[in-house]
Structures are given as C-alpha cells and as structure tokens.
Nucleic acid binder design. Sequence first.
DNA 1: CCTTTACTTGACGCCGGTTCAACAGCGGGA
DNA 2: TCCCGCTGTTGAACCGGCGTCAAGTAAAGG
Lengths: 202, 202
Amino acid sequence: MAANQGERTRRRLSTEERREQLLAVGARLFSESPYDDVWIERVAEIAGVSRGLLYHYFPNKRDFFAAVVERESGRMLRMTAAVPGVPVREQLAAGLDTFLEYVEAHAHGFRAFHRADAAGDQAVRKVYQQALAAQERQILAALAADPEFGAGFEARPETTLAVRGWLAFITAVCLEWLRGSELSREQVRDLCARALLGVLGV
Amino acid sequence: MAANQGERTRRRLSTEERREQLLAVGARLFSESPYDDVWIERVAEIAGVSRGLLYHYFPNKRDFFAAVVERESGRMLRMTAAVPGVPVREQLAAGLDTFLEYVEAHAHGFRAFHRADAAGDQAVRKVYQQALAAQERQILAALAADPEFGAGFEARPETTLAVRGWLAFITAVCLEWLRGSELSREQVRDLCARALLGVLGV
DNA sequence: CCTTTACTTGACGCCGGTTCAACAGCGGGA
DNA sequence: TCCCGCTGTTGAACCGGCGTCAAGTAAAGG
C-alpha cells in the first residue's frame, strides 16, 4: 500500500512477480472504482512503476482489465469445484460455505471480477462469460450426477436459465453482503441454498 | 433508422420532441455497445443533428447516459406498480406478465438501463440504485400488505437482501431470454415466480 | 414579413490511452 | 575484473474523443 519506492528502493522484479503485482494492484483499484475512473497512470504509480511498463506487460487497458478478471475467475473456479458423488443437498451448504469464504477473503477480486459484467468491451465480456459458463457447467454437472435432480435435467434450457439466474442472485447477494450487511455467513448461505432449491422447483 | 436527413429535410422539432428523440437513439446505442464505444458524435449523426446540439440538451456524456437510464427506470416503475389489496400469490403472475411484456417491448431500453450497473460513474450509479430501490420498495410493500407474508416481514434485513437478489435473478434471466432463448414468456414467468416464493422460504 | 429560438459550424483546449526510441541494471563469458 | 547483451524500464511525444464557445443560419409562429 501507499505510493512506495519513491525513487530510492526501485526494485527490478522478475516478469512473473511484476505481472502478479500489477494484477493485484489492478484488482484493488477496479474493485473500488468503475472502469473509466481507474487510470493506468494511477495503477503504475501505486505499483511504483512507470506507465510505459504496464504497456510492456499488457497490450492495452482493456486487456489489462481482462487479465485481472481472468486471474480472479480462475481462482474462483478452483475453489468452488464440486465434490463428485455427493448428493447436491448435502454438498450445497458446504460448497456455499467455501464460496462465501472466498468472497470474504478476496473481496477486491470478487468485486473487480463482477465489474466486467456490463463495463467491458467484447474481449472482457468474453472472459467473463466463459467464467460464468464454466461455473454453470460445474453446477449443472453436479445436478445431473445427483439421483434427486439428474433425470435428464441438464438438457432443458429452462434449467440452464434457472442456474444462470441463480448465479446472478448469489452475486448480487454477496456484493450487497460485502457492502456491510449485518447478516452472518450462515444466513446468507441458507438464503442462497433456499433460492437454488426454490428455482429448481422442489 | 439510417442516417436520415442528409441535408435536405432538416426538421425543427420542439424541445420535448428533440429530447425524446435523442434519448431514444441513446437507448438504442447504449443497448448495443458498452459506454465507451458509444460516441456522442454517432448519436448526433443518427439523430440527424449536430454534436453541439446534444451538448445543448445535456451537459455531458455521463448525464446523457444518466438521462437515458432515468427515462427507462421511470417507464419500468410505472408499468410494474403493484395492485394494492390483492394477495401476492395472485398478483405475482399478472405482475410478472406485464413486466415481461415491458421487457419485450422495450428491449433496447431495458438493456441500456442495466448497463448502468457497473459501467457508470457515481451520478449514473445513483440513478440506477434509486430505481432499483424504488422497485424493491414496491415489492416489499406488496409483501407487507399480504397476510400470508406480512408478519413483520419488511423490517428484516434478510428479506431485503432476498428481494434484491431476486431482482438480480429476474434481470439476468430476462437479459438471457432477450438474447434469443426459445423459452416462452409463460415459462420465464413461472420460473421467476417460483424463484421468489422459494427465496422467501415458502 | 419579423421575431423567436432551435440549430449549425468550426476551431480550440484538455486529458487520458497508446506508442516508441533510448536508457539502465543484472547476469554471463573471457 | 571488465565488458557485453538481454530485457526490465523510462519519459516524452502523439492520438482521438470529450467538452467549450462564439458567431451565425433558418425554420416555425404570429
């Protein structure tokens, strides 16, 4: 934090380290302000680096944002992988718990990620949509594997739409929750679980 | 449509008409492209008008977008006003039907409106948030007035969160539906109705 | 006609994104 | 130890859309 290394302790990092650092700074700034209000200059300043370097690592601002989004989507998907073989009803609460833990732990990244929904151009949206589609597939697969839901469920467009809507639901709820709601994680979890079961018509 | 009145049939409209026309063009363009990709110059060109005139009607691009969003939010709220005294269960299907009619009839405006979610700056977000809050209040009031749900419901933060999430749900479902899903309006309506009842824990 | 006012024109400054040629620090070879 | 090349890094210039302004033009209404 803080505009570090004014001019003395300017360090030369490896490509990996520098890239990671820039993405972390980007995640923080994009989580706090809409796309337009995040200046490439400010990102560079906080990273203690020149504007030009950012353009050495990323072709342009759009792609930089897309990289931030992609980094976060990868992290999210890794954490929310379904456990195969376990019934959805049992898995749901635990899965939501890990998801909510992720949301709390990486609030910046989570917010930045969902800013890609309406803000970005084609490239950014594509990354975002693919991440959502992957999450959707995880859920649909888990449902299909469960004897309670599995009867030809995944094929119906209605189910796909329901799952997509549910993802929007938990996203909105989590963003509002992060905003400073006094609700406990358990309450949020139960709310989300109820929503899924309700949507699926149980 | 089409870059009309090249130079011959240039008409002089009343302030109201011109403003309305510009907002309509804006709604179309903002529904098709993200904020940055909509050039003020292009709006003027399609309206058959000079760039300067647009700045005569709206202080700047942001406020122009905010006006587009506000116009649409007003239209939406007017159409989705709840009927007092009627139980929620009965009212829900009919209310959702009018809402879905609105979405189909004003797809451009609906899409443009929801682009304000993550795209805009403070002023635009404020307009958007107020519109959502108003819709939320309509729903909470309808719930509170219903004997089935009304028992001190509106006060609980959990209910507020549930309604907010549900709004995100129907938004996502509608946007996807507009995108060209083969689902009928009745299917979408029932899905949304099920979602609300499920979220409220019935 | 004549008044009003919607509307045009074109030039300008601003500001952020984007480009690019040159610089500087670190590692390896002699 | 010195030099050399690779590459992380810089700083300044350029571009293009936003927003401003002053002066003028022409369409509608009386």
